[in-house]
């Protein structure tokens, strides 16, 4: 759907600068979200490799540290990380389709709604089960 060209004489109070198809719109916000989730996942990955490396120290050392993660606060953090990676993964596929599929640029906005839909379905499958493990006391 091509955006209608900005009509001449738009009121000066318009928030979006005239003549842009990008700034302040879906394309920009999905890029911001992709960037923020990418960095968050990266820093989590550094910590995740370090704590998993404790299996090389001793079973007790690993179980002690993982044990400190088994509380509701960390459980919610894990849910947030899964949400971040699920969005980044689906939106990453969207970026690849925009770049390589001939009709990708035309459908980039539709594809963002598909990403949001797949995100909602995936999280609806994951969250109840995960929260049950976190709050259900084993």
């Amino acid at each position: 759907m091509p955006a209608a060209p900005a009509p001449s004489g738009v009121p000066a109070t318009r928030k979006v600068p005239a003549g842009t198809l990008y700034r302040g719109r879906e394309g920009m916000w999905s890029w911001v979200a992709h960037r923020v989730t990418g960095v968050a996942i990266f820093f989590f990955l550094l910590v995740h490799v370090l704590d998993t490396s404790l299996v090389r120290v001793s079973p007790e050392a690993y179980n002690d540290v993982i044990g400190t993660y088994k509380n509701p606060i960390m459980g919610l953090g894990e849910a947030g990380l899964v949400a971040a990676i699920v969005f980044h993964a689906f939106n990453g596929i969207r970026i690849i389709l925009v770049d390589f599929w001939a009709k990708g640029p035309k459908y980039q906005r539709v594809m963002l709604w598909v990403v949001m839909g797949l995100f909602a379905v995936t999280m609806a499958g994951f969250l109840p089960r995960h929260l049950m493990h976190v709050f259900g006391g084993e």
């Binding site: 079973p59 089960r129 995960h130 049950m132 976190v134």
Partner: peptide, 19 residues
């Protein structure tokens, strides 16, 4: 994520024995 967090007992089953 599926094997570690969803299948079986999910995240509550993760310990040295699991890894």
């Amino acid at each position: 994520l599926f094997v570690n967090l969803v299948a079986g007992e999910g995240i509550s089953a993760i310990d040295f024995g699991f890894v």
